[in-house]
Design a protein around this nucleic acid. Structure first.
Length: 218
DNA sequence: ATCCCGAGGG
DNA sequence: CCCTCTGGAT
């Protein structure tokens, strides 16, 4: 099976079988999405959505968030993972928005990654969601699942994986494919004990084929 | 125990 | 490349 065929089979399967009904981050503008995505690391969207209304209410603009003190913002962040880092990141991010980007959220990956707390994954989410750019945000799920399925070959970094995925996935499907890979990773292709026995992608999965060779009966 | 749509620093 | 950050849900 060629790599292109593998992509076609996997994408086709997802398109026909993957329900897309997950809780999503709540936001009304690019600034709010940026805050939400920064907060979402190692944390469910549901929990992020519990904290953001208070944050957006108290700091409706980058200008106001930039002036926040650590002490007053921290309590609003405290109930999610890495509150220390995220509090610092949000204030630093807002300051750079004001001082470097004229108070506007930049819409290129290269600009976004300059912001504190914004890495390539977050930058790809922002540009794909807000500006419909065909950018693939490679998080832990996408990285693992793509490698197992054989969608990426010898990709040792998220950036390498991103380049390969972008090369083979039709632009109009990049965004939804991102969600498909995440959902497959969350519910079936688990990091530790993947549920290969109940996985419909066995026949086209490089990881499963490899396991079969090692343990023919398992 | 294991998992939640990571980023920054050494 | 590794490590740290580090709360809540299941």
């Amino acid at each position: 099976m060629t790599r292109k065929e593998r992509y076609q089979q996997v994408l086709s399967y997802f398109q026909q079988n993957m329900p897309v009904a997950e809780t999503e981050l709540m936001y009304d503008n690019p600034y709010q999405l940026l805050v939400s995505v920064i907060l979402s690391a190692q944390c469910t969207d549901k929990r992020v959505n519990l904290t953001t209304p208070a944050i957006f209410n108290q700091y409706p603009t980058p200008q106001l968030l930039a002036q926040a003190s650590f002490e007053e913002l921290f309590p609003l962040i405290k109930s999610i993972s890495y509150p220390n880092n995220k509090t610092k990141h949000l204030i630093g991010m807002a300051n750079m928005l004001v001082n470097t980007f004229n108070g506007q959220v930049p819409m290129t990956v290269d600009e976004l990654v300059q912001l504190p707390g914004v890495g390539r994954k977050t930058a790809n989410v922002i540009t794909s969601v807000i500006d419909a750019q065909p950018n693939m945000a490679v998080d832990t799920h996408v990285f693992r699942v793509a490698a197992r399925l054989g969608l990426t070959i010898k990709a040792t970094t998220p950036l390498a994986a991103e380049k390969q995925l972008i090369q083979y996935i039709p632009k109009e499907l990049v965004h939804i494919a991102h969600h498909w890979l995440i959902l497959h990773g969350r519910y079936t292709c688990l990091a530790r004990n993947p549920k290969c026995d109940s996985c419909a992608l066995q026949t086209m999965c490089a990881y499963f084929q490899k396991q079969q060779k090692k343990q023919p009966k398992a």
